[in-house]
Design a protein around this nucleic acid. Sequence first.
DNA 1: TTGTAGGCGTTATCAC
DNA 2: GTGATAACGCCTACAA
Lengths: 349, 349
Amino acid sequence: MKRKITLKQIARELDVSISTVSKALRNSAEISEDTKQKVQAFAKLYNYRPNNIALSLKNRKTNTIGIIIPEIVHHFFSKVIRGVELVANNRGYNVIIGLSNESFSKEVINMDMLANGSIDGFILSISKETLQLQDYHHFNETMSQGMPIVMFDRVVSDIKCDKVIVDDLNGAKNAVKKLIENKCKSIALITTKDYVSVGKLRTQGYLEALEEHKMTPKADLILKIDDTLDYKVDLEELESEIEQLFKSNKKIDGVFAVNELYALSAMKVARKLGLDIPNDVQVIGFTDGVLSKHSTPSLTTVSQHAQHMGEKAADLLIDKLENEINEDADEEYQTVIIATDLIERESTK
Amino acid sequence: MKRKITLKQIARELDVSISTVSKALRNSAEISEDTKQKVQAFAKLYNYRPNNIALSLKNRKTNTIGIIIPEIVHHFFSKVIRGVELVANNRGYNVIIGLSNESFSKEVINMDMLANGSIDGFILSISKETLQLQDYHHFNETMSQGMPIVMFDRVVSDIKCDKVIVDDLNGAKNAVKKLIENKCKSIALITTKDYVSVGKLRTQGYLEALEEHKMTPKADLILKIDDTLDYKVDLEELESEIEQLFKSNKKIDGVFAVNELYALSAMKVARKLGLDIPNDVQVIGFTDGVLSKHSTPSLTTVSQHAQHMGEKAADLLIDKLENEINEDADEEYQTVIIATDLIERESTK
DNA sequence: TTGTAGGCGTTATCAC
DNA sequence: GTGATAACGCCTACAA
């Protein structure tokens, strides 16, 4: 077992100084061709690579991005990671992940762990618990120590940092408009409680779409699911709530659900009640997961371009990292809004 | 913007030496209560945290695990990551990810990047291209530099390292046995080309199950899909191949597919051909993804316990890292086999 | 009880 | 053209 070779070892072997070796390897003009050749050959032979950790210490720059997400077993988040990773690698950065598991304390601990020198900046999406508690001190502290943060998807306006968000409002609005255009008269909304910002915005989109078409929102057409900390939704419970919705409102001919699972459950319940999709009820979901694509009937859905969000977030962060020259010069933060697309499949006409 | 505080700064502020501060913070008996109090209070006030990078350099230990997977937008792999992360964090490690994207060169580059001091060891699953090329030099080189590797799921016997694998053979065997017990007489297999080790083993399980029940495998019941480097399978192509299978073999009453997507496609094609599931054809898939659970009918499948694999892999790796005391003493490697479970749902009787 | 010095691996500056 | 030295932040053996 040969340990990784260092400059010091090369220097000893070739009987030159460490700094000569260092310079030779960086092809410095100061060093004679002869020495350079010798050193470079030797380095190649032993497959020398500078130690990242030493470089990080010296440069006070790790070239590593920390990404904190609530959950990784989730298409949206894993696609975002893929986007981040893609851009990061292209620009010479590594990605280190932390999972908050939707928990406030895990989010804090994880950020703490990484903030102590392991990374140069964060890309993150806020956990549900944090959103509920509205305790954002860890974000502000991190930033006040000069570590930039880019938030995506689940963000809050209180925090001043770069953000990448989905155009939830218009995504939802367009989806509901589509249902209206398709002659739906009684459109149900299946959404989450309001503290999840995206749920709130999608709900708003639903309301605005109705309004624009002079339709009056009816409270009994709106179902708000409480999936608080419990990201593993209880399917039975969910379906029974949806069943209540359908039963207490027999005229429902359209459903807009703020995520894939709610939409699928709605389809399942509808079928169970003898309704045909899309002839009796048309359904649209939100998110670009696998379920939508492979369900029967396949689900019309609002695509969020998750990977693109990740790419954009990574670019924003790295731009900021590499422009630290002008330090706290222009403290201007951007919010990039990613447009959605409606992907039409079999669940709508 | 206040930069992170260091020992040096604390020392200067309190007018003591750096080592005094260091010792005081570690509650050394050498230091007077007085000084300790003073230092600790100051450190707390300024929220001092030792710099990870400096520690890594000093200890030649990063407390970071590198994980290289072919693809992150994939339930199996993201569950594995979740398992790794869980154990790693509990044991004081961070996780850094690299995506090979099923490409040999990206696998090599990513490992290279991380191996230069960024991490203490690897957990990885081999990319398809690497498996095809059978070029494993990068694994061996990494290990010969004293960096341990734990492989999971996609492994090769040529490489000597710890491994965590699914009991693919018996998983498949039990699935096919189930079909046989359920009176299927003509069981089709939808699998991948043989260079993917797991595909090969699952195929073998299928054959052994038939054999044990004195059923003769028929070549025209076996469909081998070529999903080479193209992890985004062409659905149309896939379905048309499966349709051929069904058409050229009208007696098929059972299907065992080596993954979720093949199974779902088989169900879709069967339905299209007017066959009822599970009455005319029973279907079993492999993997514990979301598709199986939410498809209609829901899919009976072989669960691999991906998260558990991740946990096990992390434990193996960290055990090895923390037992480096006896260095290359006992060069014994373990292969942990994770048993599968058959999750019965609606696609079988 | 406190401080000094050396080293982890690298690079930059400056002296020879 | 080459090498010694300092520094990044931390820890620790040893000296005072």
